[in-house]
Design a protein around this nucleic acid. Structure first.
Lengths: 330, 330
DNA sequence: GGCAGCATTGCAAACGTTTCTGAAGTATGT
DNA sequence: ACATACTTCAGAAACGTTTGCAATGCTGCC
């Protein structure tokens, strides 16, 4: 029925091993037979059975990507870039959405781990011990999660935050609010880097939260911003920023006339909002390349030069930031 | 090294065939030995090698989903729902993004088809012949693409469009613009269903396009809407609608005061925009369930009762629609 | 002219699983 | 007590591929 290496062998009048060599290690077979073999192969439309190959030499040629929520517009570009790069290197990418639940994450890893050669784990909820143990059994690259001895791609907001602080300072802002949407996740880097950057620029910072990183969080935060008489808001991500924008409009506060708003991630939301959202960009292509290269390195037993690679960020000024209001309303 | 069915057999003091039966067809093995086997199995943490199983009986327990662009916020919820349902039925879901390019689509199908038991093809760019041929070789479910003899999930905009027409009519609108963002894709259903609905409600409809379904398309369309002295716009999807909103604001036209705007898809964009976007909702869960169930049916040699299953739509009135302006400006 | 070495190819094993076939043991009916 | 049927298990084959090993024939060198 299906076209196997055996049918090609018969069609070319050689043994299966010769077919295999002609296709995988051409330099080991005579030029004329090789031609005959490849001719037969693509006349029959042969392509090797991945299950058989995988069984034989323990490779699936597939990488796994585990993310908390594909519905978060930050992730689709990441996925796309990873898929692109993986494809170019001969791999397929298998994404799984853990739905932010720790139990699901474990289950998903169990289901997926046998089907892939390695895993990229994004913002994992798992304990450090579990991650270390998992990394011992198979190639693992962590993103935004630090575990000793495990490779990591770390997104540094330091540069972007510094630029944001400078940007706001230059516009004359003094009191800012940070809406923390980190929920109960282990990674606290957003909160920390903003604190550092704003302290360095001598800007007063009021943190509210942590809440979940949802639109409604921004909606709830908007009146608090006004109550604190702040003139600028930095939100945990673009989605939260959209909530802030929405509710500021409902409360009659102009953006950026009365309040400036800054998001994080530079998702689609930022570019399509009205006015378009000033935000801190994290380059999806760069993260994707780094993570995939790191992981494929591990799969091929090439340990990384440095255990953790940094990816930068930068401010993208758009329409939601402007000069600070001199006389805060009320 | 790895724990195979053989190690479990040795640990339980039985043969490999008994282990296999104890795990797959428990009623065929004695209760006490079965207990011994499963005890050994999860003491060792055994889980079957999918490659071996797949090789043995030609099943991968994986379904493929091919979509034009995961970056379009319409797709992530679809993917999530499909993954959810597939998981519940014992399958893994493998997504691939064809990037809207026909060449990529073919290549991607080739790369993925051997790794899955069946394919869901969303808005395929392939020719009818190719699709028919592909469907002959493996289980295929098409979404929004009609090919004789191939199963299909068809998203009908009829209901949603009728409701939109009625909604606008009730608000006193008479001249409407449809911004077609279908590009050069084969599926013309959006344009057709809107024409039918607006004719039925005796609303005058000006179609512009087709352009690509991008934000910029909406931006370009906005001044044309005003030039046509229309009081309402229906956009190809939410993203295009966002472009319209953005540029209407820039042109000083109030929404919904001067112009009402309606999107399609009810993506995240619609709920987070300011004002929130009136749109036609297509339920991702329903499409996902239908497509997955159909496909798994085909995989199990259960042909569908009807070759094409319809999925409905409905209007979600939100903040961008309101009473028509009596005296169109200018 | 014989022998070492190389190029080229075939044979067979192995990967881990499921399932077909048959054998052994046990219960049932006469 | 013996045939029959059923339960329970072990053995072996098969899925498609890659690769170590061996065999063959040829080249070139002494």
């Amino acid at each position: 029925m299906a076209v196997t290496i055996g049918s090609v062998a018969k069609a070319a009048g050689v043994s299966v091993s010769t077919v295999s060599r002609a296709l995988n290690t051409p330099e080991l077979v005579n030029a004329t037979t090789r031609e005959r073999v490849v001719a037969a192969a693509d006349r029959l439309g042969y392509s090797p059975n991945p299950a058989a190959r995988s069984l034989r030499d323990g490779r699936t040629e597939t990488l796994g990507l585990l993310i908390p929520d594909i519905t978060n517009p930050f992730f689709p570009p990441i996925f796309k870039a990873m898929q692109e790069r993986a494809k170019r290197l001969g791999y397929t990418l298998l994404v799984a959405d853990s739905d932010e639940r720790e139990a699901d994450e474990l289950e998903t890893i169990a289901a997926v781990s046998k089907k892939v050669d390695g895993l990229v784990l994004w913002a994992s909820m798992l304990s450090e011990d579990r991650l270390a143990e998992l990394a011992e059994r198979m190639p693992v690259v962590l993103v935004n999660r630090q575990v000793p001895g495990v490779s990591e791609v770390h997104v540094s907001l330091t540069d972007g935050m510094a630029q944001a602080a400078e940007h706001l300072k230059a516009y004359g802002h003094q009191r800012c609010v940070f809406v923390d949407g980190n929920g109960n996740r282990p990674d606290q880097s957003r909160s920390k880097s903003i604190r550092a950057a704003f302290d360095a620029h001598d800007l007063s910072l009021i943190e509210i939260g942590p809440y979940e990183a949802r639109f409604e969080t921004g909606v709830h935060a908007a009146p608090l911003v006004l109550a604190h008489q702040a003139t600028a808001v930095l939100a945990h991500n673009d989605l939260v920023a959209m909530g802030v924008l929405h509710q500021l409009a409902a409360l009659g506060a102009a953006v950026p006339g009365d309040v400036s708003v800054v998001g994080i991630d530079d998702t689609l939301l930022a570019s399509v909002s009205t006015p378009s959202l000033t935000t801190i960009r994290i380059d999806p292509d760069e993260i994707a390349s780094r993570a995939v290269d790191l992981l494929i390195g591990l799969v091929h037993d090439r340990p990384p030069a440095t255990p953790v690679v940094q990816v930068g960020s930068r401010l993208i000024p758009r329409g939601t930031t402007g000069p600070a209001r001199r006389d805060p309303q009320q």
